[in-house]
Nucleic acid binder design. Structure first.
Length: 269
DNA sequence: ATGGTGGGACACCCA
């Protein structure tokens, strides 16, 4: 099962790029973030035509919004309204596999504004509270962690490692790479011993990015990226992950998102 | 130290 995570930055504007994604890597499940689209105007027919008859979505007008598209049936879907703001930042889909149920949590974590201080910046406070609630919810599943087949993925808006950013020194006080965010992300990761798939396929000392700002003359030449997007799996799935890749080419498509799609191949029968 | 470029909705928010 090939599972993609992609912050598409408007699903209506970039529906043609989903077609390109499908042509290039043919995913079974596509998890989108920043759909910026209410549920009733989601381009369902286009996605059906591309081979994704099963769609679970949590969209609101204008901002954020997530959706999960699938070739195979979605057995259940659940939404948690994190921080009770009515945002579209989470949707869980559950699939039947030969080795049991598989849960895929699709997240769009708040970006957090510019100032990394929750006292003066409401957006940063929201980001901290959102991460705390995620941690609480997954901690509650810790007793079953050896049995769970779960994937958590999406735009976490945090690049934790030294080589997940172009310059750890330059960005140490920049939201997405501050010590407090890195600490909160580590606490979330510890809840179920989530495995950061990327760093088993790409050595930690190698630079790895999933996002490049629009505000560069030439994103590829300057290459000042950050790894804000993640795919983590529970320990039971670790050995079933057969491949991982960031489709960097996607950042260079016509009228691109500022995030590249990334994917895993999961051998779940 | 600053400002650069893109979304969506409707004059400015968000990334």
């Amino acid at each position: 099962m090939r599972i993609v995570s992609w912050n598409i930055n408007s699903v209506r504007l970039r529906a043609p790029l989903v077609e390109k994604l499908v042509a290039e890597i043919s995913p079974d499940v596509i998890c989108l973030q920043e759909t910026k689209c209410p549920n009733d105007s989601f381009p369902e027919k286009i996605m059906h035509k591309l081979g994704y008859p099963h769609i679970a979505k949590n969209g609101v007008k204008g901002y954020h919004g997530v959706a999960t598209l699938s070739r195979v049936p979605i057995v259940e879907s659940h939404i948690v309204d994190y921080c009770k703001k009515g945002d579209g930042r989470h949707i869980e889909t559950i699939f039947d596999t030969a080795s049991g149920p598989l849960s895929v949590h699709n997240f769009y974590v708040p970006a957090g504004g510019d100032e990394p201080d929750p006292e003066i910046n409401e957006k940063f406070a929201h980001k901290m509270a959102f991460l705390a609630q995620m941690t609480k919810i997954f901690k509650a599943q810790a007793k079953q962690k050896t049995k769970l087949q779960s994937v958590i993925l999406g735009d976490f808006n945090i690049a934790p490692g030294e080589h997940d950013v172009w310059s750890s020194k330059a960005l140490k006080n920049t939201v997405s790479h501050t010590p407090i965010e890195i600490e909160k992300l580590a606490a979330l990761q510890a809840t179920l011993d989530w495995d950061d798939v990327a760093r088993r396929f790409v050595p930690p000392e190698e630079k790895l990015y999933s996002w490049w700002s629009y505000r560069a003359r030439d994103w590829a030449a300057s290459n000042r990226g950050r790894r804000l997007d993640h795919i983590w799996v529970t320990p039971k799935l670790t050995d079933k992950v057969k491949d991982y890749q960031i489709l960097t080419d996607g950042r260079g498509w016509e009228r691109p998102s500022d995030h590249a799609p990334l994917w895993i191949d999961l051998d779940v029968g």
